[in-house]
Design a protein around this nucleic acid. Sequence first.
DNA 1: AAGACCGACAACCGCCTAGCT
DNA 2: GAGCTAGGCGGTTGTCGGTCT
Length: 280
Amino acid sequence: MGCKASEKPKVSYKRGLWSPDEDQKLRDFILKHGHGCWSSVPARAGLQRNGKSCRLRWINYLRPGLKHSDFTPEEEGIVMKLHTILGNKWSQIAMHLPGRTDNEVKNHWNTHLKKKLVKNETSSSHASMTKSLESDNQCPKLEKLIDENSSQISLTESTDSLKSVSPTPCQSIHVTNHAPFPKVLFADWLPMFSGNDQSSSASESDTVNCQLESTLNPEVLSPKLLQFDTKFTEVFLHGFEDASIYGGFKLQFEPVEQIFGFHDQADTGLELNHDMFVNL
DNA sequence: AAGACCGACAACCGCCTAGCT
DNA sequence: GAGCTAGGCGGTTGTCGGTCT
């Protein structure tokens, strides 16, 4: 890491919301040159922003392939599941949601999902169980396992230590905690459309970018991704009013490999997720 | 119509980690 | 090994638009 001192801009940085003009400058610059050293980007791109701000703007808003549509119930279900397992590891949760950023997931959780969860808690006689999942500290051994074994965790009812500590849906969770796919660096995908005519219209360019992102994200290629067990989502989104539902409720996760299609990325083909082309 | 209030989301802040010198 | 810096992440704040009174 590191950046040449000579590249560091010495300007008073602008703050606050980005204007369309600033967005365009940043987008044009990165698509043309890559970001390289972020701290040098604003000066080279003609922006009165600091590098960190540029990086955030690019990652959270300008980066190709991002969705800007509302979260689908399926996506909300995924967030709920993963939050149960991972806690506030927004970046890790976002990895499982193509086109979503950690910031977006975090905001959606804080503004929508948390409220729904609280609502469900108050409407359920089993609130304490759900609440135990909400708290990051309620499943300490799980957290420890995740931390200590970042490659994979597998929890079953035969795990005595966990059984004694947390007789919750944790028991039936089987998680592969490795990143579902490697983070896509700019350098990885920029060359793929370096031949793209820079004079192309924005829409054409965006389509290319989008297709590119889709190609690089195995999850996007896997229609199975969002075809996960909807039981959790239904219960979560609609509450526990139906005691019979809750009575038989437990997290019956498919192995995440099945949910997300991690294992066999090669057979995912090139079928593109329609959502990737929305709102770009 | 206007001010108050609230929710959603973009952006910032502070901390941590990793890499370079 | 120490110090410095960039990048990454999660928590928090600021801003804006919509709704209510």
